[in-house]
Write a protein that binds this DNA or RNA. Structure first.
Lengths: 351, 351
DNA sequence: CGTTGGCACTCTTTTGGTGAGAGTGCCAGG
DNA sequence: CCTGGCACTCTCACCAAAAGAGTGCCAACG
């Protein structure tokens, strides 16, 4: 296959583009007649039929049935996105909505959740925001607050400004001074390490401690291990919002398809796998239908972008929708939101 | 209307009960023949038809069309629930599932969210859990943790064991000792007051402070006001889970009805209004179809119960589903979950 | 040689009609 | 008061016919 997708001459490219655009707009199969009517070609339906037949032979178009118009295939969409699409510029309002929403909150969880809602509304698709386990991120400090007898709130601040907290129950008794001392100790000792590394160190220290018989150290280790255990389990870190938007899409007017789709969106593990694979990628990613296992089975497409600070991606934000979606609008939307989130996070980090 | 619903004689009551039960089980209109076949009546279809015609005249039954069987009306369901229903005893498994889930977590937000999921799964309906603004609840203590320059995490513990935290950004500079002092001051001074009361007191103090020119007090007031402002906005306090369950209900096989229903479930304000009105009620509440504005429009029913500690309700837990639901099973489920949550919360409070 | 009008062909969708089935209401007789 | 019988109504499934949409191919044209 030629590198620039040059196996298509100019006219064929224009026809493919027009078909994709019309199909995205109407949701219906496109006939040679409606192409002729659009006025962009000085050709008769018969001539356009020839071009369309060629495009079908090359695998860019398909016919639902003999006497129907043509519909783009996965390959057709892929070609469109790679070579034909002109991304729409976001409207003032779209940009403002995103900026406003992102700059609004301070707690990252909340901001991300809102982001998925905003994205869903702007795109009129399902919005997803994924934030993988924090175990791989470095901490800046750790504090402990006595909440009740035997109940302690641990507050972990990441170097990227993320704040996580968790209530720890313990048999041991701590007073405020001890807690403060422990927090200071851990913050100094483990600055810059990931939760995972910290846990391992603490476990190692258990051994050493046996010899030393230092009560304070013992308490520190016990509390520390509890605090880093199970932080942010897989339940909390995937927001899927706006599922109702797919109800208005004609491709899901069939109840059976609808049901399957909804159940698929509930299978968070599969989704997490998919989004995880988007995590390391730099730019905007678009996966169409058969291009990944998950989207293949359910005939989705996904437009995704990772966000985070310079050195390390923190998570993925994206849109899930039917293959037939306005990629030219979705792409800049997701891209812009991803950048806005990244900017926000870097501000937190350095500010 | 007679108080005990005695306008119906024994036979009519039995017929109504049987019709409701069969209809709930099958989802179809019930004919005189299928009633005769069930064996509980020693009557011919023709006789049952007479009884059914009477029940229809009284508004307990309705016919979808002339040559169809009968279906219970709102009034029919209401009568069934008030006078005829025998609540099913929960299975061992159901009780275990609820107990386990409720006793599991420590953070109340998380527990409540899980509760809505559990309820949805057990009931195979939409589960809702509502927790209104915390402004009306009393605090036990308040702590502040320095998260970053100009960024402070406030931790508020309610007398009911609820832990809320919020990141506050401020122009003022605080060091750890100051924060601890402020926390201790507020905890002691405002113990048992509601956030709302605290805010008002702090605002009042602003005036007094002008005269005194005490820098520390000034900082305390500024930080305190920030901390109690906007705690738990209306966004976070309603969990609606298991919307996919309605996809399997035959009454929503029509795509249009489905769409309307989903959109209705997204209108959280309306739902919150409704649940708020359930908050003050003591026992289990069941609202059927036309009995409330919201359920009327969308032809829902709702089974709800408030939970909380002895003196004050904290929130509402419930099920939303089609009018045709197994009330005899839903009622004890919701009731049991509500009690379990209340027990949990009281434990936190006293433990 | 690319383009075009014409035409036969295919497949889907709509329409109308018919018959079976389900259920009721009512009546007359037990 | 109960019950069998019967006429009536409404729905649903099925089928056939017709309409509509679109293609493929061919022959003619510039």
């Amino acid at each position: 296959m030629s590198q620039q997708g040059e196996e298509l001459d100019g006219r064929a490219r224009e026809v493919l583009r027009e078909i994709v655009m019309q199909h995205v707009a109407t949701g219906e199969a496109i006939s040679s007649r409606s192409l002729a009517k659009c006025g962009r070609f000085q050709l008769s339906p018969a001539s356009l039929r020839n071009v369309m037949a060629d495009l079908e032979d090359l695998g860019y178009l398909a016919q639902p049935h003999t006497s129907a118009g043509r519909v783009p295939t996965d390959r057709g969409y892929r070609f469109f996105i790679n070579y034909l699409m002109k991304s729409r510029v976001l409207t003032q309002r779209e940009r403002e909505t995103i900026d406003e929403q992102v700059s609004h909150g301070t707690e990252i969880d909340h901001v991300l959740h809102e982001a998925s809602l905003t994205l869903s509304r702007l795109a009129d698709q399902v919005g997803v925001v994924f934030m993988p386990t924090l175990l791989q991120f470095a901490i800046r400090s750790m504090d402990f607050v006595l909440v009740a007898e035997n109940k302690i709130l641990s507050v972990i601040v990441g170097t990227n400004g993320v704040v996580v907290n968790k209530v720890v129950e313990t048999r041991l008794n701590f007073n405020r001074e001890e807690l403060e001392k422990i927090g200071r100790f851990i913050s100094v000792e483990f600055f810059g390490l990931t939760l995972d590394q910290i846990r391992r160190r603490l476990v190692n220290m258990t051994e050493e401690e046996r010899a030393m018989q230092d009560e304070m150290l013992q308490k520190t280790i016990a509390l520390g291990i509890e605090a880093v255990n199970d932080v942010r389990t897989s339940e909390n870190d995937l927001y899927v919002e706006g599922a109702a938007s797919i109800l208005t899409k004609p491709e899901f007017s069939d109840t059976v398809a609808l049901r399957k789709t909804f159940l698929a969106l509930q299978e968070k593990e599969k989704l997490i796998d998919l989004l995880n694979s988007c995590l390391t990628e730099e730019g905007l990613q678009i996966l169409i239908g058969s291009e990944s296992d998950f989207t293949h089975v359910h005939n989705f497409s996904i437009v995704a972008k990772s966000y985070g600070s310079h050195n390390a991606p923190l998570g993925v934000v994206g849109i899930i929708g039917p293959m037939r979606m306005e990629y030219a609008r979705m792409a800049p939307l997701v891209d812009y939101l991803g950048r806005a989130l990244s900017r926000k996070i870097e501000e937190e980090e350095h500010g």
